[in-house]
C-alpha cells in the first residue's frame, strides 16, 4: 500500500513496478494484500486471481493430456499386434 486514503497499491506488472488502485476490490483495507495476484484494467485492479482455481483448471487440462497420451499409447500398442 503506498497511499491508504486513495487505495493505491504498488504492484509488479510483468516485472515493472507501478501503482494501481485497488478500491474496487476492497474499501476497508480487507481483501487483497501482498503476494496476491490481481487482474488490472485501466489502472484499477478489477478482480483477484484465485491461485487454487488456476491450478485446478490447469490440472484438468493436463489430465486431458494424460488421457490422450494414454489413448495414443494404446493405439500404438494395438497396431503392433
Amino acid at each position: 500500500m503506498v497511499d491508504e486514503a486513495n487505495r493505491l497499491a504498488r504492484v509488479d506488472v510483468a516485472g515493472v513496478r507501478r501503482n494501481v488502485n485497488v478500491g474496487l476490490l476492497d474499501d476497508d483495507g480487507e481483501g487483497v494484500g501482498p503476494g496476491d495476484w490481481v487482474l488490472i484494467h485501466v489502472g484499477f485492479a478489477i478482480s483477484q486471481v484465485d491461485e487454487e482455481e488456476a491450478l485446478a483448471t490447469r490440472r484438468l487440462l493436463e489430465g486431458m493430456g494424460a488421457d490422450y497420451e494414454q489413448e495414443l499409447e494404446e493405439l500404438k500398442a494395438s497396431a503392433i499386434e
Binding site: 474496487l24 476490490l25 487482474l39 478489477i46 486471481v49 484465485d50 491461485e51 482455481e53 483448471t57
Partner: peptide
C-alpha cells in the same frame, strides 16, 4: 464458467455498487 480463476459467479459486488 471456464474462467473460475478470475471470474466469481456473482461478479464484483463492490464494483457494481460503485
Amino acid at each position: 464458467n471456464q474462467y473460475t480463476r478470475v471470474v466469481p459467479y456473482e461478479g464484483n459486488l463492490r464494483a457494481l455498487e460503485v
